[in-house]
Amino acid sequence: MSEVLLSARGCSYVYPDGGFRLDDVSLDVHAGEVLALVGPNGSGKSTLVRVMSGFYTPDGGMVLLDGRPIHRMPRRKLARELAFLPQEIPAAFRFSVREVVAMGRFPYQSAFGFVSAEDAAVVQQVMEETGTTGLADRVFSTLSGGEKQRVLVAGVLAQQPRVVLLDEPTAALDIHHQADVLDLLWRLSRKGIGVVTVTHDLNAASQFCDRLALLSRGRLVRVGRPAEVIDQDLLCNAYGADVRVLENPLTAGPLVLVPGEAAHESR
């Protein structure tokens, strides 16, 4: 497989209140792949992505970018190589879309942050890539959920990172916009960027991602291609639910369904 960009080595993290711990997780992210972190609520997906982005410092283990521990790198330098899009983004004040995307240039700017010709060119380019050029002069806080997410991805790309980590980028989107954003991530990965995304949607993950990492109760249960991870017994165990795996007629990949009580009733 291609070059390892980002690597979690035996990472543990305990929240200050001691309520949840991430336990000894090791995971590699390769250049040019989309890796989905999946698992039930409270399994540690968001915690892991925060540790791997440098937002949380692990209590044990370390995160390496090209073999260098990221928690010892200067923050701005790290931000030029690794970008993180958190799940909840407030939108205070009436910043325009172009301004929001240009904020992604922060790690390259000097103290006062005047926008250089190079900054402007990068902003223009990432807006074209994400199909947000037409929104440039709109006020960010007035956009729809799908538009906002594309603009935020553009802002993250303006950092020109080699690895992008996203925490549930499609959580609030309808199926059309979800596919839009996942397609966008897939295209980025083909350019050599390593993409890590947290998602709840196992079917979308199987369809759009190269590899899946299944977490349960703070531990990494299995990593591999969708067909290796989407296993009926494994998922039943991890989610503590009656999960069925069928064949997806569209892709011949796995299709995950949870029958629930209603399905039993209608039989």
């Binding site: 909840e88 939108a91 942050g113």
Partner: peptide
């Protein structure tokens, strides 16, 4: 005045600002 550019980053939340390299 020196921190004006960094202050803009707070509008989109502390988490994203950290990811951009803001202390």
């Amino acid at each position: 005045g020196l921190e004006a550019n960094a202050m803009n980053q707070l509008a989109l939340g502390e988490e994203l600002a950290v990811g951009r390299g803001v202390s």
